[in-house]
Computed example of a mutant assay.
Amino acid sequence: MAHPKDVDPMRSPRAFYGSELRRLREAAGLSQEKLGEMVICSGAYIGQIESAVRKPQLDMSVRLDAVFGTDGLLARLCVLANKSKHADYFAEASDLEALAVAIHEYAPTLIPGVLQTEAYARAVILAAQPLASEESVRERLAARIERSRVLANPTRPLLWVILDENVLRRPIGGPNVMHEQLLHVIGLVERRRIIVQVIPIAHGAHSLMEGVLSLMAFDDAPQVAYVEGLHAGQLLDDPSSLAKCQLSYDLGRAVALPPEASLSMLRSAAEEYLR
C-alpha cells in the first residue's frame, strides 16, 4: 500500500478525502492508532482510508468531524469520495485496481476492461445498453479507457490474466475490432508487460467457469477478491472466501496453456479475423 504522503490527492475524490484526513490528523498531533481509538476502528483502517485503499464511510466521517471540529467537512467529502464513473457494484473494485501491486484475473467472455481498446469497449457498452444516449456512451467509454492507466507504469502492477478461449472467438464489434483488440493484448505480452494464459475450449470443464474473478494484492493491505456476475459484483476479503478463490484460480492456471502456447493461440486468432 502506498504511504499516505505518496498518494496524489488529485488522483481521485477518495484520494483527496484521504489526504485531508491525514492533514487533519497530523495537525491534531494524533497517530493513526490514537485516532482509530477515538472513532472506534483500528489504526490500520485509518491508514487504509488515508491511502485510498478503503472507501470512507459516512457514519465514521461524522465521528471524525466531531473529533476534529470540522463542521461536517469530512461527511460532505465522503459523499463525493463515494461517487464513481463506474457501476455501483464495481466502483470500489475499480479504485482498488488502481492501487494494486498485483492483479490475477480470469475472464470467461470478454477481454478484461483494463485491456480493452476503445473500439472494443464501445461495442461492449452498446451491446449492454443499445438505447443509451451518445453522451452516456462517451462517459462510460472514458471511464473504461481510464482504467488502462494502471498499465502506464512499466512494472506495476503485475497483471496475470487467464482468458477462456471463448473470449478470443466471440467477434465483439466485428472482425476488424477483434483483430485490433487481440493485437493490443499481444503487444502487451510481447513487451513483457502482462502475462496471459488461455484455457482452450477443448479442455472442457474447469474451476473458473462460473464468472469473472480478480485477485488483487497490495503492498501493505490485505488481499481482496472481486467476483462478478450479470449486473452484480462483490468484493471478498474474509480469509475463507479468499482461500477458495485462490485455489480456483490456481486450478484454472494449471489447466490453461503455458504463456508461449497461449501467445501462439492469440496470434492465430488475430490472423483468422483478417480472413
Rank of each mutant, 00 (worst) to 15 (best):
H3I: 07
P4R: 01
D8F: 01
P9D: 09
R11C: 05
R14A: 12
A15E: 08
S19F: 10
R23S: 11
R25M: 05
R25W: 05
R25D: 01
R25E: 00
A27V: 04
A28D: 08
L30F: 05
L30T: 03
S31V: 07
Q32V: 11
E33G: 07
G36C: 03
V39T: 06
V39K: 02
G43C: 00
I46K: 02
I46D: 01
I46R: 03
G47E: 00
I49M: 04
E50G: 05
A52F: 14
R54A: 04
R54I: 08
M60N: 09
S61L: 08
V62D: 08
A66V: 09
A66G: 15
A66I: 03
T70P: 00
L73H: 09
L74S: 01
L74D: 02
A75W: 02
R76Q: 10
V79I: 15
L80P: 10
K83E: 13
S84K: 06
S84E: 05
H86Q: 15
A87C: 12
D88R: 07
F90H: 07
E92T: 14
S94P: 12
E97A: 12
E97G: 07
A100L: 07
I103L: 09
I103D: 01
Y106T: 00
P108A: 03
P108M: 02
T109P: 05
T109K: 11
L110T: 13
V114P: 00
V114K: 04
E118W: 04
A119M: 08
R122E: 07
A123C: 07
A123E: 01
V124Q: 04
Q129P: 12
P130K: 13
A132P: 01
E134I: 08
E134R: 15
E135S: 14
E135W: 02
V137H: 06
E139G: 03
A142D: 14
A143D: 03
A143C: 02
I145K: 05
R147S: 04
R147C: 07
R156V: 11
P157F: 01
P157T: 02
L159I: 12
L159F: 15
W160L: 15
W160F: 15
W160Q: 13
D164T: 09
E165L: 08
I172Y: 09
G174A: 07
G174V: 05
G174K: 13
N176V: 12
M178A: 04
H179E: 02
E180D: 14
L182Y: 03
L183C: 07
I186M: 08
E190Y: 15
R191E: 15
P200W: 07
I201L: 14
A205K: 14
H206P: 01
S207A: 12
L208E: 08
L208Q: 11
V212P: 10
L215C: 14
M216V: 04
M216D: 01
A217N: 14
A217E: 12
F218M: 05
P222M: 04
Q223Y: 06
V224L: 09
Y226R: 03
G229L: 10
A232I: 11
A232T: 13
D238Y: 06
P239Y: 11
S240P: 10
S240W: 14
L242D: 02
A243I: 08
C245F: 04
L247W: 12
D250M: 11
L251N: 14
G252I: 04
A254Q: 10
V255K: 00
L257K: 06
P258R: 06
P259F: 00
A261F: 09
A261V: 13
S264N: 12
R267M: 08
E272R: 14
Y273C: 05
